[in-house]
């Protein structure tokens, strides 16, 4: 009886191990895709297709947003480029940077009895003729340039610099237009001739003008919107 019990116990013990092991392996292999029913697989495929479509549309949406962001990026790049161009333009207008280009050089020799108003009139006429930059004896004319002449010594000054003959006025712009403008009949040149002043006017393919020495800093002027 005892031997029977032990023998049965032994085989049932192993049978138990075998059964549960087999059960668990079967359950895990049952959930394997390979062993699925065709209908179930079809349902799964349908579900996954729907999911994929959703994800695809999400990808499209995200790509659209990416495109937008890149676009706004490039538009800010355009803004920077525009601002840079504007800064360069303003620097030229304010005479803060050296410039070069075609233009004319107007030279008045030592013997001429020039007063500072003659220079101002010449410069006015050059501006009027479309000059983009003007310098007198290689000092750039800016928005704050002033001329002065001593009543006693007739010594001329431009800003804080002494101006001595010969005077060399450079104007950057279309050379022909500048020459024609300044030589208009009854204009400044004709006027100067009355005083025996005969400026020498040369058109030059390329002249270079310096920038102003120091940029003024404004602390009182405020913008009006």
């Amino acid at each position: 009886m005892n031997k029977k019990q032990i023998a049965l116990t032994v085989i049932l013990f192993f049978f138990g191990i075998l059964t549960t092991t087999q059960y668990r392996s079967h359950v895990s292999s049952y959930s394997d895709l390979e062993n699925q029913e065709q209908e179930y697989l079809a349902a799964m495929a349908r579900e996954l297709t729907t999911k994929k479509r959703l994800i695809d549309s999400e990808i499209i949406e995200l790509e659209r947003r990416l495109f937008e962001l890149e676009n706004s990026n490039s538009s800010s790049k355009v803004i920077v480029e525009n601002l840079t161009a504007e800064i360069n333009n303003l620097q030229k207008i304010n005479s803060t940077v050296p410039v070069k280009g075609p233009g004319i050089i107007l030279t008045i020799d030592n013997s001429s009895p020039v007063i500072y108003t003659d220079l101002v009139k010449i410069i006015n006429e050059l501006w009027n003729s479309g000059a983009e930059a003007i310098s007198v004896n290689d000092i750039r004319v800016s928005s704050r340039t002033y001329f002065y002449q001593s009543d006693e010594t007739y010594q001329m000054t431009m800003n804080t610099n002494l101006l001595d003959a010969p005077y060399s006025i450079k104007a950057l712009g279309n050379p022909q237009v500048l020459k024609t403008g300044i030589e208009l009949p009854g204009g400044i040149i004709d006027n100067l001739k009355l005083y025996g002043i005969h400026p020498d006017i040369n058109t030059i393919p390329e002249i270079s003008l310096p920038g102003i020495d120091s940029v003024p800093s404004y602390s009182y002027a405020k913008e009006i919107n």
């Binding site: 019990q5 049965l8 116990t9 049978f15 138990g16 549960t20 092991t21 668990r24």
Partner: peptide, 17 residues
């Protein structure tokens, strides 16, 4: 005893995984 053996074996098989 045999049934005890069966259950112990089953439990062992389940736990060993």
């Amino acid at each position: 005893l045999p049934f005890l053996g069966l259950f112990v074996g089953a439990a062992l098989g389940y736990l060993l995984n």
